[in-house]
Amino acid sequence: MRRCVASFILLWLAFSCAPLPAQDSGRDKDSQATIVDRQPATVKPESHTRLRFGGFSAGGHYSASRYGYPFGYPFGYPYYYPFSYAASVGWSPYWWGYYPSMYPAAYWMDSSANSGKVKIETVREDSELLIDGAYAGVLKDLKTLSLAPGAYNLEIRVPDMEPYQKRIYVLTGKTVNIAPQFKPLPEVVP
């Protein structure tokens, strides 16, 4: 039991904390000698394999039955005695609750299609967010946005501060992190 828990924790730590292997370093060494005469048309960036932690699930099961399930009987077999209880919880960065915890991949497959993410570091929760000049909401509710690929003009308004403006470029499956820096409004001399 302890070994199982320990191995699970180790697995989880390994996949969630380990940096993704960069393949560029290997390429640098062997191509340095021939790179000087490369022209734009000949550049062929290598393909990457991205390893990511999709989420985990933990389940518990209790059964109390003399004629027990599970012994290979189909559901509804006369000997089945429905005195059992099962519970399962799960977590996935791509899973927001519509799908059962045992199938986090289902949501991931849907959510990663044709959108990128924008994560905004919140300074004050009452900050207002404007996208391309249009009010999008309060930052408290919009710490992470999903946007279609494109270029957007972001503006964050905080009371008594100069608005923070930034042009961002959103790409499918990528995350743009924004840490806004605010300056106080210049004092108006009467």
Partner: peptide, 14 residues
């Protein structure tokens, strides 16, 4: 290539 990993753990009592 995108490789996603999903560890899971289960505990039961019967």
């Amino acid at each position: 290539r995108d490789v996603a990993v999903y560890p899971s753990i289960g505990i039961g009592y019967g």
